[in-house]
Design a protein around this nucleic acid. Sequence first.
DNA 1: CGGAGTATTGAGGCGCTTCAAAGGCGGTGG
DNA 2: CCACCGCCTTTGAAGCGCCTCAATACTCCG
Lengths: 248, 248
Amino acid sequence: MSSAKWAFEVFVERLRALSPLSCDDVAALLALPGEPVRLRGNTDIELPGERFEHACLVVTGLVGRFAQLADGRRQFTALHIPGDMADIHRVATPFAGSALQTLATTMVVRVPAKNLRSVAFNSPAITQAFWAYSAVDAAVLGQWAVNLGRRDAKARMAHFLCEMGLRSEFSGQGARNEFLLEASQGQIGDALGLTAVHINRTLKALRQSKAVTIDGRIVRIHDWALLVAIGDFDPNYLQLDQSARAAA
Amino acid sequence: MSSAKWAFEVFVERLRALSPLSCDDVAALLALPGEPVRLRGNTDIELPGERFEHACLVVTGLVGRFAQLADGRRQFTALHIPGDMADIHRVATPFAGSALQTLATTMVVRVPAKNLRSVAFNSPAITQAFWAYSAVDAAVLGQWAVNLGRRDAKARMAHFLCEMGLRSEFSGQGARNEFLLEASQGQIGDALGLTAVHINRTLKALRQSKAVTIDGRIVRIHDWALLVAIGDFDPNYLQLDQSARAAA
DNA sequence: CGGAGTATTGAGGCGCTTCAAAGGCGGTGG
DNA sequence: CCACCGCCTTTGAAGCGCCTCAATACTCCG
C-alpha cells in the first residue's frame, strides 16, 4: 500500500486541496519520475550548502529538516511523514540553509529538481500549488516557533502530538488518536527544543494525566480533548479544512 | 527619502536579486497601486482568520507577525522593517493563521490582494519571484526556531541583532553595526521568547561584554565579530549574497 | 552473544520567570 | 504650558522548570 505511487497520489491530492489544478496538471505531476531509495535511521540526506538536485517524497518512515549548532546539538524545523514532499521550496530558492536527515528506516523517492522545475515552468497553476504547499510548511513552522518560544514542555508535547496525529490521519496513516511516530525520545527533543531526559519526564506526566501513552513507536491519545486543551491546539494552520470537510 | 516609492523599489530590487525578472515584470510591479496608511505603535493590522484583502509594504517603522496564546502572551514569527513586504505568501494561501501588528509608529502601503494576484497571474516569473521571496521569509523563520529551541538568552539576542543589522544595512537603512530597531524590550522579548525583564538583563550582559549597546532605539554594535561568535551567526540564510556581492 | 542505542529514574544546579518597586521619558489633556 | 499618566527601563529577591551528570535496565541487530 505504501508504495511510491501511493505517496505521489497523497502529494497531488494535497496540492489539489490547496490550489486548483487541471487534469493535465495532475497528469503531469503523476508522471513525474523518481528514484526510490531506502535509508537507515539517522542518515543525513542533504547537507547545508549543497546544490539542489532533487526533492524527497517520503514513502515510509520519517524525515526531518534541521539546523545544527557549533556544538553539534540539532533543532528540527520540520518533520515529514509519508506522503509529504520535502524540499519543494527549493524549486524557488535552490539554496539550502538547512539539512535533511532520516529519523528511522525510511524509503524516499528522489524527484529530480529539473523535472519539478519543468512541470512548474509549463503550468502557472502548478507553480502556484507548489507555492501554496510550501506556504503551509511555513505556517507549520510558525506554530513550532510559538511552541518553542512560549509554551512549557507539557504544552509543547501536547501540541506536537495533536499536530502529528492530525497530519497522519489526513495522509491516510492511522487515526489522530492512534498513529505511528517513528522517532526516539531524543529526536522528539530535537523537535521540541528539549533534552531526551526531559521528554521522558514530560511523557510520563502526560501518561499520568491519562491523556496519552506511547508504546514502542505507536502514539495512543486517550483523551483528545484534554490534549488539545493542554497544548492550546487550534488545527486551522494545517489547512486541512477543505479536504477534511469533504471527507466528513 | 523613505517614501512609498522608495519602499517599492527596495521590494522589487529584492525580488530581482532572488529571481530573474523582465523589464515588463519590473514595470508591472512598480505600477502596483497602494494606499498609504499611518498607524500608531501596538496596533493590530490584521487579525487571524480574516480574509486576505491586501499585503503590507512597510515604509517606516516596524511590523510584526505574531500568534497569541490563550493567556494573551504573544510570540512574533517575523519582523518586517522598511522595504519589506509583509503577507505576500497569502497570495498563495489567503488563509491567515497569524496576525500582524505595528511595534512603533509605522507607515505602510496597503497593496490590494487582487492586484498582486493579477500581476502574478500575468507573469510566471513574478509568481516565482513572490514564491522565492516568501521562501526566504520561511528560511528566516527556520533560524528563529533554532534560536528559540536551542540557544540561551545571550546567544539568541546576539543572533537576532546580527540579523536585524544585516537586514537593515541591506535595505539601505543604516549600517549593520549601527541601525534603528524600533522595538521596546518587551517587544524584543516577544520575538525571542523571553520576558521583558530578562531581555533587560541580557542586554546588560552584552553591554558589559563590550559587544553592543542600545541607546533609545539605536543599536550600536561595537564588536561585530564578537557578536557573531556569541550568536553563532551565519548570514547565508538571509540570501543577501548576490546583491551583497554586486554592491561590493 | 555482544554491543550500541534507547528508556527510565534520581540528584543537584543554573537560567529564566515571577513578583515587586522605583525612576525616567514622552505624550496628552486641562 | 505644565502637570500628570502610562509605558518603558532598571534592579533586587525568590522560585521553578529544565538541564546536566550519572547509573541501570531493556531491546534490537549484527
